[in-house]
Amino acid sequence: MINVVADVGLLCLLLTVALAIVCTRSPLSLVLLSGIYSIALCTLFVILDAVDVAFTEAAVGAGISAILFFAVIRPEDEPVTAFSWPSSRAILLGLGVGVLLLAGTLDMPMYGDHLAPAHQHLALRFLGQSFEEIGIPNVVTSVLASYRGYDTLGEVVVIFTAGVAVLILQPDNKKGPAKPGDRDRFAPELMGNPVLKTVLLRMIPLVVLFGLYVQFHGDYGPGGGFQAGVILGAGVITYGLLSSATRLKRIISDKWVTLGMALGVLVYGLVGVAGLFLGANFLDYSVLGPTQTAGQHLGILLIELGVGLTVSCTMVSLYYCFKQGES
């Protein structure tokens, strides 16, 4: 009952924020609104039992996306009028499409229906047998890393591709490396503020610790390589914001970041190739250990490390690249 109330309430919130976004023109307000939207969506995902997804949405929607958007928007983009209705042509088209789609939803199974076809076929085996076959309690991790491990390899490659893309797109810095005294336009208020520095610098080890916890606890609870990578990356970026990107680059240079990005994909891929050499199919972890579950455990541990490495390095690389574009 309480779930349903929360579900409906959050749906209303989502609709309100989405409508506000349709009518808003100011980029700053848009980014803030989309952050609120993400948090609402993430809470809704918890209500709908998708804790891993909610975790990711929180890290991505409210975290990375917002940071990236803030790196791109500028005060001079703010329009004179902050609010405008969409054109009537778009509204009409949207309404038309919406009514058509509404008719298409009528055969769908109801909310929470136990007999819905989606719960019958594949899901039965994942829920019923994954513990014997893989031996970890978080079924989402089992499916993600083993049954559909190849999709996850694809996912890591997508992140890597985005990292490569942003590297290619970063403007060539012809002025040479930035001087140590350069102000960080990314977050000017963070630098040289004793309060922030005192609190946040002490937070960084905790953030890193939390990241490692999420990395290695993903088998038993929500979390895993992706979320851990985002958290670790956030910890490193916080340091960059507090001192300066130049300082951070002296500790972790661009080259190492790029290397880590590529290495993560290679780790994942080579775990798969190891299966080939041991006489099994690509990404079959069962042959990696003495027993099937031991092999699956080892394989999942390794590939999650690869995911974490690629994601965290890509985060830092994104920060460097967007930083570069500001000079």
Binding site: D52, F126, L127, V139, L144
Partner: peptide, 16 residues
């Protein structure tokens, strides 16, 4: 338990 498969797919889709 709720169905884990859509969660897996959406994890990937969010990252994409």
């Amino acid at each position: 338990y709720s169905n884990p498969l859509p969660h897996v797919l959406i994890l990937t889709a969010i990252v994409v």
